[in-house]
């Protein structure tokens, strides 16, 4: 088995695990972890695409894509955690219209 194929298969496994977690888990933090897992899997697949062609050097385009993707995933994580924090603060408050912690 070639290395790119191994990477791609591991990536596919991570994507499936992450997607499963995103659908099945209910806690926002668990879902956030699942989203990160899925993202890492997607990036592995992209990186393996860079090596799959029999050229001498790897193709730089997928690496650029992965860099962009990492930034996006970090932003996703930040937004998700901020919302989860707000949500937790809202359920600690006694009224349904709380969450004025900002």
């Amino acid at each position: 088995m070639s290395a790119p194929l191994l990477y791609a298969l591991v990536g596919a496994g991570l994507v499936s695990l992450g997607a499963w977690g995103l659908v099945v888990r209910t806690h926002p933090v668990r879902k956030t972890v699942a989203a990160n897992l899925m993202g890492s899997g997607a990036f592995l697949i992209l990186v393996s695409a860079a090596r799959a062609t029999p050229a001498e050097r790897p193709d730089p385009v997928p690496h650029a894509l992965v860099l962009t993707g990492i930034v996006v995933t970090m932003a996703t994580t930040a937004v998700a955690l901020a919302l989860a924090k707000r949500r937790a603060a809202a359920s600690e408050g006694h009224s349904g219209e709380g969450a004025s912690d900002g």
Partner: peptide
């Protein structure tokens, strides 16, 4: 900022 809005936003985000 209400509980319902945050729940909707989280489910939309994921």
């Amino acid at each position: 900022g209400s509980k319902a809005a945050l729940d909707a936003a989280l489910s939309y985000l994921f």
